[in-house]
Design a protein around this nucleic acid. Structure first.
Lengths: 332, 332
DNA sequence: TATTTCTTTGCAACCCGTTGCAAAGAAATC
DNA sequence: GATTTCTTTGCAACGGGTTGCAAAGAAATA
């Protein structure tokens, strides 16, 4: 049915090695030979079978792209950037939807069966052990958006969540809020823990500011809304640092329902700066996470690991940035 | 490094065929043999290489998942459902981001090189020729969310966009709007064309209703917003049928800026019923597209084609449904 | 032109599995 | 117990490529 290397060799009257070489960059072939082969190949509509090739080259150019977050719109941006970045380098993303799973075993086995060249774990909630499982089997792995401190054995590309928490704290302090709160994502998420940690650390410098914290069940609109509605039954803070933009939007919705106004009655700063946050109807002040850079860097690091599998693990952290929009009152 | 079938065979003291059979369902192996092999295999941490296997079985279980829309949040839901559905059946999605490309050649070649078992084209904007290219090379292909009428050679799973357009028209008529407009996505998108077609057809039955139409540059918030702002400089209709929810949300934002109120001054009905449309702060009346069913059905059809590659092409269309929320005035 | 060096080519083994076929072994029948 | 039938096993060829090595050919040097 579909033409093979042998067919091309027959048609061109040359050996199979010659054909193979004609399709390999930098192989030892004369240009006459290459021309002859290419002619035969194009007449037959031949192109090499990557999977057969991978058997000997040990390179599939398949990359496992693992995520456990298919609900937060920011991940659509993430997938877009990852797929384009990989494609541009001739790599192919094998998408793995982890859903509720946090155990690496299944994914690990599956990705090994497909001999992926590497694995990109795109998650800010998975425990470091997840990525470690791949590394310990010798598969290059990058934990994008991961926590760097606790897993120095694995490459991490992302941001310093602790510092981001401090940044939020400084910002609220500068705007003279006297009672602030952190409204995080799921308590077990490493990103939430770290942002809270930084937030408290920094706030400790302002003894006059009251601080509290609480967690939403997940990074989602409804979770944010629900949590804020719950909070509204008690003492409401003057400003909230919200662990994620989609969560923030839920919170905004709740605030409106309660009958309060942003930023007049209550301040809000989000996290991520997803596209939607800049929509005029939302206009969320938030902390921008440079996902374009993070993703590019993740891919570059992955590619570098192909040549240097035992590369010493590093953490690549990018600075975040406050994006001023309409949900915090002006600075002093 | 990683254990192969031969290693297992040596360790267990049996032939490679025996090992192979032990890992194949329904193969002729005694249970003693299987036990022996499994023991050796688990000691070595062996699991079969799918790609090597695929050379002889001619099944990779890889499915190309092709999309050109990484901006509309509905596609996050689509990816979620597709990846889970495929995984549940032991299939693996190889994600292809088409971006601006509409030419199938590159994707076709790439997916052939990876010997995918089938291709799912998830797009309501790609021309039918795109999917046809795969079919003509003998690769099972389903056009999910595609247009059925113009490409009877390819399997299509989705909705009847013309009928959906009629549905919107009926709904607006029933609510006694006297000047309505269709605000579609990109004019070249088949889905936009069909929805407009149905909308006009149905509206033709109501000679007293004035009707017009216009197109946004793409299915996005900004495109919707921009288009509505532009429209606001001229004659504004009483109600808009918007070709997509994210577009609608942009339109809503513009309406607010203009100083009009929904549904008091102006009505709006969207399309898709993405998660976000049900957020309390948006509460968009819209037409629900049953994407869960569409995607399940697409996958089932794909699987059926494995056994019956020349299956006569069919269109599977699912009915849509109006979801009443807060952006249309009550029925008469 | 003869010799040396470099480039190009083909052979054959290999990558990691599967599978048709025949031989060996076990079970069933007489 | 001998014969027939069924099950299990191993051999060897195969799937679609790549690659080390040696031979052949071309170019460079003497």
């Amino acid at each position: 049915m579909v033409a093979t290397l042998k067919d091309v060799a027959n048609k061109a009257g040359v050996s199979t090695s010659a054909v193979s070489r004609a399709f390999t960059d930098g192989a030892s072939v004369s240009s006459k030979m290459r021309k002859k082969v290419e002619k035969a190949a194009s007449e037959l509509g031949y192109s090499p079978n990557f999977l057969a090739r991978s058997l000997t080259t040990r390179r599939t150019k398949l990359i496992g792209l693992v995520s456990n977050n298919f609900h937060n719109p920011i991940f659509l941006e993430v997938f877009d950037l990852f797929t384009r970045g990989l494609q541009d380098r001739g790599l192919r993303p094998l998408l793995v939807n982890l859903s509720d799973e946090t155990n690496p075993e299944q994914s690990l086995q599956m990705l090994r069966q497909y001999s992926v060249d590497g694995v990109l774990v795109a998650s800010s909630t998975l425990p470091p052990e997840f990525s470690m499982a791949f590394r310990s089997k010798g598969i290059p792995v990058i934990n994008t958006f991961g926590r760097y401190s606790s897993s120095p054995e694995v490459h991490v590309v992302g941001i310093d969540n602790v510092e981001a928490g401090r940044m939020a704290a400084r910002e609220l302090a500068q705007r003279n809020y006297k009672a602030v709160a952190f409204l995080g994502g799921p308590e077990i998420a490493t990103s939430t823990q770290d942002r809270l940690k930084g937030f408290r650390e920094e706030m400790a410098k302002y003894p006059l500011i009251r601080i509290s914290h609480t967690f939403a069940k997940e990074y989602s609109f409804q979770a944010g809304r629900t949590e804020m509605l719950r909070l509204s039954k008690g003492d409401v803070a003057e400003a909230y640092f919200c662990g994620d933009d989609v969560l923030s939007i839920g919170v905004l919705s709740a605030i409106k329902d309660i009958g309060l106004e942003v930023p007049k009655d209550i301040g809000l700063i989000g996290f991520n700066d997803m596209k939607m946050s800049s929509w005029e109807s939302i206009s969320l002040t938030t902390i921008h996470q440079p996902i374009q850079q993070i993703i590019n860097s993740s891919i570059e690091l992955m590619v570098a690991m192909f040549d240097e599998p035992n590369r010493y693990p590093e953490a690549r952290l990018f600075p975040c940035q406050i994006i001023e929009r309409g949900t915090l009152r002006p600075r002093l």
